[in-house]
């Protein structure tokens, strides 16, 4: 069996989520990669990848030609895999439609070649599903699979002509003006709670966020207290996040908040109260005054 992985390359480097997708796909057998636009070389360097299908002519990830192209190649593969990213979620279900198969999104665990675990109800339940399709089309959650290294492999590269796209035309892309990543897609999130005491103190999170390229979040209590705007709220009534690293600063870990971040891979808590519920879910905890801990943390990074 061979799997085909849609590998996303950004600024010459394979995105970590795609390296996780390659790791997941190697569970099925040999792995081929397909790269849209430039970047075939970066994909060819991934350990475990045998062959790279390079489509330099398809620069803007348009779903229509991408899905057409994947569908034309699909019969050679048992599994077609992508990261559960905006790109993966745009293209792969369309591919599934062309192949008349049922896609399996957001896989967090692979039980065997046709059995997968995926979250439903915003992660409040985990469904184990078995697919009867001959070609499995799935997207995988990066945080649940250790990524392969960025280098060490030497795959062959085959260049493919991009099909034309008439029905869908790329117009432009606008990347967020802020240097800070968005909460829901950030690899690292640092959130503040009522322990920060006022809105001005939220600035204390920024130098650390800068160093880690983290998004900044807030607990509902902090939002309710006017320390942070509502769009920063992480939790049941705010944004649900699952970054690689979540740093909770001065927030107790109310259950509404936990519901919004408990799927993070690694959780760090900084709080004065050793009994705070946040420590119950944290992998690493520091009991201490955040106003003392934050500056030392910034220095240590």
């Amino acid at each position: 069996m061979t799997a085909l992985v849609l590998v996303e390359v950004e600024n010459g480097a394979v995105r970590q989520a795609s390296r996780s997708a390659v790791a997941a796909a190697s569970r099925f057998g040999a792995v081929d990669a397909i790269v849209f636009g430039d970047g075939a070389q970066a994909a060819a360097a991934l350990p475990g990848v045998t062959r790279v299908l390079s489509v330099p002519g398809l620069v803007n990830d348009l779903a229509e030609p991408a899905a057409d192209l994947l569908a034309a190649r699909a019969k050679d593969y048992s599994h077609i895999v992508a990261a559960a990213s905006a790109t993966g979620k745009n293209i792969l279900p369309r591919l599934a439609g062309l192949l008349d198969v049922q896609p399996i999104p957001d896989v967090v665990e692979i039980k065997d070649v046709d059995t997968f675990v995926r979250p439903i109800y915003a992660g409040n339940a985990l469904a184990t599903v078995r697919s009867a399709d001959s070609i499995k089309v799935l997207t995988v959650r990066g945080s649940n699979f250790d990524p392969v290294a960025a280098e060490g492999g030497s795959a062959t590269v085959e260049t493919i002509e991009a099909p034309a796209s008439e029905k869908s035309v790329f117009v432009k892309v606008e990347l967020s003006a802020s240097d800070r990543p968005e909460l829901e897609s950030a690899r690292v999130v640092i959130s503040g709670g009522k322990g920060l005491k006022d809105a001005a103190n939220f600035k204390l999170l920024e130098p650390i966020a800068d160093k880690l390229n983290a998004a900044i979040g807030a607990s509902r209590a902090a939002v309710d207290s006017g320390f942070a705007p509502n769009e920063m709220q992480v939790g049941q009534t705010g944004k649900i996040v699952a970054p690689e690293l979540y740093i909770a600063v001065g927030l107790s870990g109310a259950i509404q908040h936990l519901a919004g971040m408990k799927d993070s891979r690694v959780i760090v808590a900084i709080n004065t109260d050793p009994e705070a519920p946040i420590f119950k879910v944290a992998d690493y905890g520091i009991v201490g005054d955040l106003f003392e801990v934050l500056p030392t943390l910034e220095k240590a990074l």
Binding site: G123, L126, A127, T128, K280, V281, Y284, G285
Partner: peptide
């Protein structure tokens, strides 16, 4: 027709309490 069979649905495992560290340096 369905192509997926739901084998089971479970609650996500509760996270286990981790360790306390003594300093920011140790944390990093």
């Amino acid at each position: 027709a369905s192509r997926l069979t739901v084998v089971s649905v479970a609650e996500p495992a509760e996270r286990k309490e981790g360790v306390k560290v003594n300093s920011a340096a140790e944390l990093v």
